[in-house]
Each structure stands twice: as C-alpha cells, then as structure tokens.
Design a protein around this nucleic acid. Structure first.
Length: 506
DNA sequence: GTAGGGTTAGGA
DNA sequence: TCCTAACCCTAC
C-alpha cells in the first residue's frame, strides 16, 4: 500500500463536518458565535422571530426609555418619521465578497445598495418564493446588484409625492377633530390612512391649505436690498392649494380649527443668553436654580427651557459639564444641497462642539463644582466601549439604510500590503488571520477600539463580531450568505463551509 | 428636578 | 420640502 502523507484536518474541515449530535434538520449554528443559521428562512419566518407568543413585537432596544404602557393601548406600527429612527441597521456589507470577478479591475466598486425595485414598497412583505429568489440573487450576483444600484455617494432623496384631494380632505378632517398641532396623532390615526406622510408633512401641507388657520406664521419681511428675493416674487403662476370656507364646509368642517395647547415659541435674546451663561457658571446644571435666580430674570422660561437652550446654543460647554448632547447631531447631518457649504457661526458652534464630544480621545473638561456632583456621565464618552454603535453610521438622516461602497481595491489589498508587523505586535488571538487592515479599504467608519486593543488596530474583525451585529435585524438582513463557500442544497442549506477571512483574502 | 429624546413651529 | 431650535413628555 502506498503511504500517502497523513491528512491533517484543518479548522475548516472541523467547521464543515456533519454534526454527530444535532440532526441536519436542526438549523446549524454559526461555528464561531453560535448564531442560528437560517438560510432558508423566509421573511415571514424571520418576522415570527420578532414576535412573541402574544403576537407583540419584541422590543428591539429595551434599554431605551419607552413611553408608559398602561396596557390599554394597542401598539400600532410606527409610521414614517424623519427624525426619530434610531434602530441600528447592519448593512449586508460583505455580501458577495467571496466572488472576486475575474475582471474586477474593470468593474465599478461593489455596492451593497439594494436594487431600487427591492427597496420600494417596504411595507409589502414578499412571499416566500420571492424571498428565496432574492436571497439567491443577493448571494450569487452581487455585481449585478451593484450595477443596478443608483450612484452611491449622493444621499437619496425621497421623491416628492403630490398631495391628493383625498389626502388633503383627510388632513383637514383630522385637524378639525384633533386640533392644529396634533400632527403626529393625525398622521398615525388609522382612519385617515396617512401611510407615507409624516407629521411634518401634514403640518407643511396644512400651512399651505389653511394659512389663515396657522396664525403663528409671520408675514415674510420684504428684503429691500434684494429685488429678486422670494419675498418680492409673489406666488408661482398664481397656483394655490388654499382651501376656501366653502370647501371646508363640503368636508363637514363648519367651525374654526381648534388649537393645541402649546406655549408660543419665543426666541432667546442676547441678554437671555448672557444670563443663561452666567447662571450656568453659577449653578451648573441646576436648571431650576437658574430659573429661580432673581438676578437672571428667567420667570418666563421653565427649567427645561433653559436646559434646552444651553444644550443647543452652547453645546460645547454643555458637554464639557459632562452632559450628553442631543444624539441626532451625531453625526451632523449634511446641509441640504451642498455638503461643503460654509457654515454660519452658530452652525460652527454646534458643529465644533459635536466634534469635540465625538473625538472621544479626551476626557471631559473639569466640571463646575455642582455639575461634577450632579451630572451623569456623558453618554458620548461611553461610546468607545459600546461597539454596537458601529451600526449607527450606516443610516442617513432619514433613518434609511445608506449603502456602503466597497472599493474594488479591497481585492488587491493583500497583494499590495504584505504583513509587515512583527508577530509580537499582534495579539495571540489575531495571529490566525492575516495582519492586514482590510477594513481600511472599506469606506466605513472604524468601530471604536477598546483601549487594550491598540496593537490590534490592524487585525480583522471576527466573524463572530459581524454575525453578532446581524442578530439585531434578522428579518431585514441576510445571514452573511456570501461567507458560505459551496453550493446550496435543495433545502436551502449550504452544502459548503464557511469562508474564513484568510481564504477570503487569498 | 433632571436627562433623554420626541414633537412641532417657523424660517429658508 | 428641509432644517433647526423651542417646546414638550416621561423615565428615573
């Protein structure tokens, strides 16, 4: 008998061998982190994972403060809201990485943007067959997906949707019923069916239709120095969507619209700002003390008003006192129309303060005595240890997923950048992977590194880390199908094995 | 009473 | 239609 060299099983063999304990009908677990593999799960099945036995949605973010649940209300799906979405969404960034095209140098960068057709009608759940097809397409044809995707780099703007007469009628009825200013309530009321209109949209539309019922709107001031200013141009071609009294009566609206109880908006004067600064220096974050300080004359403001003003006008001071800035300015949304538009002084204040608190490299400045005792630690300074935040950067201002562009150079990176770090500089746990910074070839924000991992800066993230992210939104993301090497079996399970990063790079 | 963050007003 | 700041609600 010929003596062949003894075959030494590799780690990949161990990963891909049949499990002697669990029958194959049981979904296989991820070899690295135990995440259940659901290659054939349809959207409906994945949806069920998000629901408990009572059919209620499992809270995705249990740590976030939620409104009081009195048990009497029904939780309806939240309607589109421009400013409030905070849910982490992990993009299928690495989909298709295992298939470097032979002519990759000629092809455009790989994009993970979903085809336009798939992104439309988000509320429509495709059937199982469609889902399967989508999964297979996403797995097998990543380049085709990239080709059909819109140009990346520019923020996607939702298309304008003209208000129909029916929508306007529903809006007016809603305002007549709930009052001017109850935009969220109206927009979420099932009777009116505002599927694709936010509360902001409703408000804007009402301002157009019934300007007389929006008395807070000030008359535009004429700018005498600019003859072409909008204030002097008049309305475009006389077009108006203004609703007359007769039209309102036709809708059954016979009385003036009620107003929501809300204080009048009142801007802050320079004097008030000075007093606020003085009060902040004196009392720290004791807003009630600032308000009741007779020298400062803040009788017409509430303590929260003062906190809000300090938070928006002097964010740097606010954060230096150990107080967390508002999260929605992280990162600062790009200016509409021109990302590089010069900023005003006020903008710079906010932006610089934002930069200051997001630099994360410096500890908070010394706090005022009272603030030191009272203030909670700033959330921003906790971010480095919270690597889940990595996901937030994949959302644009609308809370929509933003495509991540993979530079085609990622495929050449290992060749161009041989490992040159001494082995001693690489943590033991990272030596099984090539010590290259492939992630640096992605246009991704780098996830914060824990302080003890400074030498691991060049190490690749583990599969466990990536698939752990995937657990957040299993219904919307694929379970890294591209990291499976080998054909899909008839039942949808992969017959191959998981592709390691070393294989990926080689 | 304060913090966190959602909602709305008003200007652009 | 978008953006920002004032206003507001609610958990702690």
């Amino acid at each position: 008998m010929s003596s062949l060299p003894a075959y030494k099983p590799t780690s990949l063999d161990l990963i891909s061998r049949p499990n002697p304990v669990e029958p194959q009908s049981i979904p296989q677990r991820h070899p690295l982190n135990g995440t259940p593999q659901l290659p054939q799960a349809s959207n409906k099945e994945l949806e069920r994972l998000l629901y408990n036995a009572n059919g209620t949605v499992i809270d995705e973010n249990p740590d976030k403060r939620s409104k009081r649940d009195d048990g009497k209300s029904i939780h309806l799906p939240k309607l589109p809201s421009r400013q409030t979405t905070k849910r982490l969404r992990i993009p299928p960034t690495l989909s298709g990485l295992h298939q470097p095209p032979p002519n990759s140098g000629l092809l455009p960068s790989i994009s993970t943007e979903q085809p336009e057709a798939q992104r439309k009608s988000p509320d429509r759940i495709p059937d199982e067959a469609t889902t399967q097809i989508s999964i297979v397409k996403a797995t097998l044809q990543p380049i085709a997906v990239a080709d059909s995707a819109p140009a990346v780099g520019k923020p996607r703007k939702p298309k304008r949707k003209k208000w129909s007469d029916e929508e306007t009628a529903c809006l007016l009825k809603g305002v007549a019923r709930f009052g001017v200013g109850n935009w969220t309530k109206i927009s979420q009321h099932p009777e009116y069916g505002f599927q694709s209109r936010s509360a902001l949209d409703l408000k804007d539309r009402f301002r157009v239709c019934c300007p007389d019922d929006y008395p807070r709107l000030k008359k535009k001031r004429l700018n005498r120095h600019e003859p072409n200013s909008t204030a002097t141009r008049g309305t475009r071609s006389g077009r108006t969507d203004r609703k007359s009294g007769a039209e309102l009566q036709d809708l059954g609206i016979n009385k003036p619209f009620a107003k929501v109880q809300r204080r009048c908006r009142r801007g802050y004067s320079a004097t008030e700002d000075e007093a606020l600064l003085a009060g902040f220096n004196k009392h720290g974050n004791q807003w009630a003390a600032i308000r009741s300080d007779e020298d400062l004359d803040f009788e017409h403001r509430t303590a929260t008003d003062l906190r809000d003003r300090m938070r928006t006008r002097y964010p740097e001071l606010y954060s230096k006192a150990g107080l967390a800035p508002r999260p929605e300015i992280f990162p600062k949304p790009a200016k509409r129309g021109n990302d590089e538009e010069p900023q005003t002084d006020d903008d710079n204040d906010v932006y610089e303060a934002t930069q200051a608190v997001t630099t994360l490299a410096q500890p908070p400045a010394p706090l005022p005595p009272k603030a030191t005792e009272q203030a909670r630690p700033s959330q921003s300074f906790l971010l480095p240890d919270d690597d889940v935040f990595f996901g937030a950067a994949f959302e644009d201002h609308d809370g929509d997923a933003v495509g991540i562009t993979l530079d085609r150079g990622i495929l050449d990176w290992p060749l161009d950048n041989p490992p040159n770090k001494p082995a001693g500089a690489i943590p033991e746990s990272s030596r099984t992977t090539t010590a290259t910074d492939t992630i640096a070839t992605l246009h991704l924000p780098r996830p914060p590194m824990p302080p003890y991992a400074n030498s691991g800066y060049s190490a690749l993230p583990s599969l466990a880390t990536i698939t752990a992210f995937n657990d957040f939104d299993m219904a919307g993301q694929l379970e890294l199908p591209s990291l499976m090497l080998g054909p899909l079996e008839s039942d949808g399970r992969s017959g191959g094995h998981f592709l390691g990063f070393d294989e990926l790079l080689s």
